[in-house]
């Protein structure tokens, strides 16, 4: 009896909260908020709240066309789901309501960072299997961009871990809740993280892999219907997950508040991160790939290194 109850609870956690269904709703909402903010800043009305859902339903109901010349048709079909599952698993490591995450072990920060790079790899493979010239160029860009932003991003994620003295996301969030003043130590790292987030989520100014005016749909050019709907969903979920991860790692998650209130605070802070992302997205032009690499390696990596040193010194002083 106990076992069945536990199993049911686990199923609930995976399928409903904080698993698939919750993430699905949250992703659509975040997508809408992002689009609405973007539109309002451009002095437009913006879409109604159900627009992302309507888009998703429309894509799901459309016919999926698989190109004749695609190499590895099974791979072509499986990759969107792989991308989604990777980001969904990642949310289990993050303490959303309260201070406890669903799954937690020493070093889950690294695991989360790796899980977050799986969608990027999926997008690269998606471009590669499509074998159309636009997808090929897009796939090359995905990989090049990955090498540019991933290093500073991982480097700045190490900073809080050093300050908190733990590789657990849960512990880091707990540490910052206990010592809120220590958050300011990582302010540089947080800024770098927000910039690399634009690269991770492939948004302006780093939406190079699917720059529509250059290479049409980029890696997703050949995708349609259900599969494309799931890719879109994966990107929206990734946005939520990355924002949640940064919130937990840099801003102390729900700041020690338990239950529903903690959850609300958490959502509010995630929304702030999405707002910052929307502002960056609307205030800039897309840069070229080599400009992006230059920027990441010449500006972001040194700042990230500096942040590491600051973190180590802060740790030494604070004990």
């Amino acid at each position: 009896m106990e076992m069945i109850k536990e199993l049911l609870i686990q199923l609930f956690e995976i399928l409903i909260y904080p698993g698939l269904l919750f993430l699905f709703v949250a992703a659509l909402l975040a997508d809408w908020i992002d689009r609405k903010l973007y539109a309002r800043m451009q002095n437009r009305q913006g879409p109604p709240w159900y627009q992302p859902l309507a888009d998703f339903v429309k894509l799901i109901s459309k016919e999926t066309i698989i190109p004749k010349h695609a190499v590895g048709k099974h791979l072509f079909r499986v990759l969107p789901y792989l991308a989604i599952s990777a980001v969904v698993v990642c949310i289990f490591f993050i303490p959303i309501s309260g201070s406890l995450a669903l799954m937690s072990f020493q070093g889950d920060l690294i695991a989360a960072a790796y899980l977050l790079s799986i969608p990027t790899m999926c997008f690269f493979l998606i471009g590669w299997t499509s074998s159309s010239p636009y997808s090929a160029v897009g796939a090359m860009r995905v990989l090049t961009q990955f090498f540019a932003y991933e290093v500073p991003m991982i480097l700045v994620l190490i900073g809080p871990a050093i300050v908190a003295g733990s590789w657990r996301i849960e512990d880091i969030a707990y540490y910052y809740s206990a010592n809120p003043s220590m958050m300011f130590v990582n302010i540089l790292g947080f800024i770098v993280a927000l910039i690399t987030m634009q690269g991770k989520l492939e948004r302006v100014p780093f939406d190079i892999p699917h720059a529509e005016t250059e290479i049409v749909g980029g890696v997703f050019t050949e995708y349609s219907g259900k599969l494309y709907g799931f890719i879109k969903l994966a990107i929206s979920i990734e946005m939520i997950v990355v924002a949640a991860l940064f919130n937990a790692v840099f801003m102390g998650g729900s700041l020690g508040l338990e239950g529903f209130l903690g959850f609300l605070l958490f959502c509010f802070k995630v929304l702030i991160i999405i707002l910052i992302s929307a502002i960056i997205r609307s205030a800039m032009a897309r840069v070229r790939i080599e400009q992006m690499i230059n920027f990441c390696w010449r500006v972001l990596v040194p700042i990230a290194m500096l942040q590491l040193i600051i973190s180590i010194i802060a740790r030494a002083f604070h004990g």
Binding site: Q42, N43, V204, D207, A211, T213, M284, A285, R286
Partner: peptide, 13 residues
């Protein structure tokens, strides 16, 4: 031109 370089805000304005 702004849209071609992904600067959609300038495009809208």
């Amino acid at each position: 031109a702004a849209h071609e370089i992904g600067f959609d805000t300038l495009f809208m304005y």
